[in-house]
Every structure is written in structure tokens, then in C-alpha cells.
Simulated scan of single mutants.
Amino acid sequence: MRVLAKLENARWLDRIGDAVRRAVLATVGKGRVGETLHGQPIGHPAHPAIVQFPVGAWMSAAMLDLLPGTEHAATALLVAGTAGTLPAVVTGAADFGTLSREQRRVALVHAAANTAAVGLFTASIVARLRGDHRRGRALSFAGVGVAGAGAYLGGHLAFAQAAGVNHAAAALPRVPLEWSAVDSVDSFTDGKVGTRAFGDTTVLVYRENGRFSVMVAECAHRGGPLADGRTIDVDGQTCVQCPWHGSVFALADGHAVHGPAGSDQVLLRTRVRDGLLEAARP
């Protein structure tokens, strides 16, 4: 943990991280391609799911290497796993463009470890194709160890540093569990966005044709203040744009229209009772 703390504070990595981020954004962009690779259509980053294929193939090859007479099967798995790193790299790069500087420092070493692992697995494949299966096994086991270190950093990035998580969902414990009054129905105007204190947080309230949607006012991407965002029209939908990084959410249903947010904005349950708008956790 002390090593990770030093890594998180290694500002000398920022020059590299900033350059890589610029290259990623120039290549992938901030538009639909980047949003798709980041995983917006499925509601969360795609990279963690995609890496299961190469890692699974490499681990399976390592298990076969412990058994006699499985050289050809292990080699086939290594080839498949190493080829499968391409979509993992592309989606990981898209995620990199959405990270903060502190997160990018860890992500750089995570990527470096995985690159080294791919190099070891590639060398293992070459050795096996030349008939040197003993050397191939040794290189493969080394690759599994380095890939494991990279996976550990990836886990730290996702869970300890909250990269890719829905920050709006993290605010839900501060929202009342049971039905609670937000405000009187008459205090809201059709087509206008209102903000109210609700429980121990702030919510956005949008009324359209007498129907209400209430969402947590913390941006899903990085917890930015959506209450300070501007409303814009996107393809006929009234949306709110986060003032921090520009994520755009449809006010009617919380759908993430544009990134860098990969998750939809959390909507609360709503009902109207005795002239009051009430809401509760989903």
C-alpha cells in the first residue's frame, strides 16, 4: 500500500500521462467512437469485461503447462489470448482519456505491466513454435506473474481510486429510503429544471407535461455539480451538461447522451400525493 501511495503521488509521471491522454483523445476522440469504446452503450466501462478473454486464455495455458502432452493446446491458447489483447488495449485507451491525473499515474504502470506481459507471452509463443517448450513454459509463467501485477493495479484503479464507477450511485445512501416530500407540485414549471435539498444531498427535478423525473445532482462521471450545469437541447431532448467535464444527460430519464460519463444518471422513484412531489431511492 505504501508503494501504491507513492505511485499515486508520482507527479513526474504526469508529463507522460498528459502526452498519452492527448494522443488518445486525438486518435479516439471525445465523440461517439470514444464513448462506445468507453462502454456508454452498455452502461459501464467495457475494458474490465473484455480483458477476461486474454487473461482467461493465458491462465488456462498456464494450467495446461502443468500437465504432460498439452503443448499444442497451451500454445493455441497463448496465441488466442495474445491476439485478444487488441480490443482490451483499445477500450483501455478510451478509458484512459477519461481519468484524472492521479488515476492516470496508476494506469500508466498498469498499462506498462500488461505490455511487458504481452511481450513475455509473445516470446513464449515464438519459443514454442521453435520447439523449445521448456523455455516457452518459463516465459509463459513469467508473463502470468507480470499480468497478475498489472491486474492488481487495475483493481486498485477501479476500486480504490473509483475509476469508471458511477459517482451518482455512490450518493444514493444519502437519499431517503422511504417516500419523502421533495416540494409542492406547483413549485415546479413544465420544461424547467429545479434543484432541491433532499435528504443529505441535492437533486435535480425536471417536469415535462406533468410528469416528473428526479435525479441525484452529482455527475455519474466524477461527481461534478450538475445543479450548476446548463440545459441544452440534443435531438429534441432537454438535457443537462455537467460543468466539470461536459457529460450530457437526458433530464427525462437520466440517459447518458454524451460522455465522458459511461453510466446513466441515477433516477429516484417519484409519485405525487396530496399536491406534493415525493421521491425515494430506486
Rank of each mutant, 00 (worst) to 15 (best):
A113F: 08
R135E: 15
V165E: 15
R137K: 10
R101F: 02
P176L: 01
G154Q: 08
L129F: 13
L153V: 10
E102N: 13
A107D: 15
A169P: 00
L120N: 02
Y152E: 05
F159A: 10
R174E: 13
E102Q: 14
R104W: 10
N114A: 05
L172N: 05
G148N: 04
G164M: 05
P176M: 04
R105F: 11
V106P: 02
V126H: 15
V146Y: 01
S124F: 01
D132T: 04
Q103C: 10
L157I: 01
L153F: 11
V109E: 14
I125C: 06
V118S: 08
R135T: 15
G164C: 04
A170N: 05
A151C: 03
T122P: 01
R105V: 06
H133D: 13
S124Y: 02
A111C: 12
A169I: 00
L120M: 11
G136E: 05
A170E: 12
R137D: 07
R134N: 08
R128L: 15
A160E: 14
G164N: 08
L108T: 04
L177K: 14
A113L: 14
H167C: 00
A113Y: 09
E102D: 13
F141V: 15
G155K: 11
T122G: 11
A113D: 10
L153T: 12
G136P: 07
A151V: 13
A107Q: 10
V175K: 03
A112L: 14
A171Y: 09
G154M: 04
A116K: 06
Y152A: 12
N114T: 05
S140Q: 08
S140M: 03
L108N: 14
H110M: 09
A151W: 03
V109Q: 14
G154E: 06
L177C: 00
P176N: 07
A111I: 13
A117Q: 06
V106L: 09
A160Y: 01
D132P: 06
N166I: 00
A113H: 06
G131V: 04
Y152M: 06
R130D: 12
A127M: 04
A142D: 01
P173R: 09
G154Y: 02
L172R: 06
A112F: 07
F141T: 14
S124I: 06
F141I: 14
L120I: 00
R104H: 12
F141S: 05
G164Y: 10
A117Y: 07
G164S: 06
A138Y: 01
R128V: 15
R104M: 11
L172M: 12
A160L: 14
S140K: 01
E102Y: 03
D132L: 05
V109I: 13
G119N: 08
A123M: 07
R128C: 13
G136M: 09
S140W: 01
V109S: 12
A168K: 01
